[in-house]
Design a binder for these strands. Structure first.
Lengths: 222, 222
DNA sequence: ACCTGAACACCGTTCAAGT
DNA sequence: ACCTGAACACCGTTCAAGT
C-alpha cells in the first residue's frame, strides 16, 4: 500500500528539486573550486533560467550553506554511536571520517569552513560528540569544551589541506597524489592522538575528586 | 644623516604604495566583511582608477594574500622567542596572541583561513614554533607535528569564531559583546591547555628512552 | 613606468509578465 | 506556484592610449 500522495499543488509542476540544485552546486565545486558555484552556472546545469533558483533558495549563501549541510550529513555516525567501544576509538574514528569526507570535496570544504554551520546535521554531530565525551567522564562543561576542541582541530586541519586551490583547475575528488595524502593523514592522526591524550589526562585528574586539582577546572560554558 | 635616496625612477611618480593599497583593503574588510574588498572599492578608496591596482599586484588574490601576510606580521614574537621562560608559557602566549590578532579583523580572518599562507611571515611563525617544540624535547618530527597541531587548532577556532559574518554590516574590531568574547577566549585557552598537556606527555614518554613506548612514535614528515 | 577610459565577460538579485 | 526575459548595479581583468 503506497503512502498517501502529498497534497497536489496547483499551478505548473516543479521542474527542479532542492536536491538537484545542491547536486549541481557540489559537482561545480568539485570540478572548478570554491568560485565555480555561481547561481548562473548552477541554473545552467539544471537547465533553468538563473532567477528560477530563487524559487528554492532565497540567497546564494543559503545554497552554499545547504551544500555544507549535505556534506556533513554524509558523515557516518555508526562508529561514534556504538557505546560498546572505547571512547577514544569512537572519537578518533569520527574525527578522521569527518576529515576524509570534507577533503574529498576541497572546493566545498573551503566554503564550509567559512560558513556558520548552524544547521541540523552540524548540531547532531556536536551533540553526539558531547555525549561521547560525557561517557568519557569529562562532565558537562568538559564535554562541551572537548567537542569544540576536536571540531576546531578538524576544521583547521581541513582548511590548511584544501587551501591553495586554484579556481578553474580540475580538482575532482582524489586528485592529489596518494602518497602526500597518506602522509598528511598520518600527521592529522598524530595530532588527534595528542589531543585525546590531553583529554584523557584531564578526565583522569577530574575523577580523583572534586576540585582536588587545579588542572581540573572545567571550561566555561558560553 | 639621511639614508641615501633610492635610485630615481623615470616617468611619472608613483601615486600609490603597496602599503596604501593593503591599508585600504584591510579597512574595507574591517568595515564590510570578507566580500567588501573588491578591486574597484580599494581603488576608489586610494583615489585611482580600478586598473591602476594591477600595477602593484597581478591579481586580486595576490592583494588578499598580502593582507593576510600583513596580519601575521603584526603578531608579536617576543614571548615566543624568550628561551628563558617555560616552553608551555611561550607556546600558549603565541597561540593566544595569534588568535587575538586574527579575531580583531574578522573579515580579513575569514579570507586568511582560506588562503595558502606560504608567505615569509607565516614561515617565520612556523619556524619559531618548531624551535620552541624542539626545546621542549619533542624531536625534529615531533616538533613539526606539534607546530601543525597548534596552528590548525588556532585557525579552526578562529574560523568558527569569525563565521556568520554578514557582508555589509558594520563589523569593526571589538564589535562583539565583551562578555561573549571573554567566554570564547577561555574556551580556547582550555582547549589549548589540553593540547599542551598531550604534547608534554608525549615528550615525557619520548624522554624515557628510544622507542621504549608505542605512544612515542614520531609523526611522519611529509 | 605608471595611470586612464573604455570595453568584455561575468556576477547576484529584482521585477514585471506569462502559465 | 513556478518559470522566463530583461534589466540593474556590480565585479575582475584586459587593452589601447596618454604622459
Amino acid at each position: 500500500m503506497p503512502a498517501p500522495a502529498a497534497p497536489r499543488r496547483r499551478g505548473p509542476r516543479r521542474a527542479l528539486t532542492e536536491q538537484a540544485i545542491l547536486d549541481a552546486a557540489l559537482s561545480l565545486l568539485d570540478e572548478g573550486g570554491p568560485g565555480a558555484a555561481s547561481i548562473r552556472r548552477i541554473a545552467a546545469r539544471v537547465d533553468v533560467a538563473p532567477n528560477a533558483i530563487y524559487t528554492y533558495f532565497p540567497r546564494k549563501t543559503a545554497v552554499l550553506r545547504a551544500v555544507a549541510e549535505r556534506l556533513l550529513d554524509g558523515v557516518d555516525h555508526d562508529a561514534l554511536a556504538d557505546r560498546g567501544r572505547p571512547w577514544r576509538i569512537r572519537a578518533g574514528a569520527l574525527a578522521l571520517e569527518l576529515r576524509t569526507t570534507l577533503i574529498a570535496h576541497p572546493g566545498a570544504a573551503v566554503l564550509l569552513v567559512a560558513s556558520p554551520l548552524d544547521g541540523p546535521s552540524a548540531s547532531t554531530l556536536d551533540e553526539r560528540l558531547v555525549e561521547l565525551f560525557t561517557d568519557a567522564g569529562l562532565g558537562r562543561a568538559g564535554a562541551a569544551g572537548a567537542s569544540y576542541l576536536v571540531m576546531d582541530y578538524v576544521f583547521g586541519s581541513v582548511a590548511r589541506e584544501v587551501t591553495g586551490i586554484h579556481d578553474g583547475g580540475p580538482l575532482s575528488p582524489g586528485h592529489e597524489p596518494s602518497a602526500a595524502r597518506a602522509a598528511s593523514t598520518e600527521q592529522f592522526v598524530w595530532g588527534l592522538d595528542r589531543i585525546l591524550d590531553g583529554l584523557s589526562a584531564w578526565a583522569g585528574t577530574k575523577r580523583e575528586g572534586p576540585s582536588a586539582h587545579e588542572g581540573a577546572i572545567p571550561p566555561p560554558t558560553p
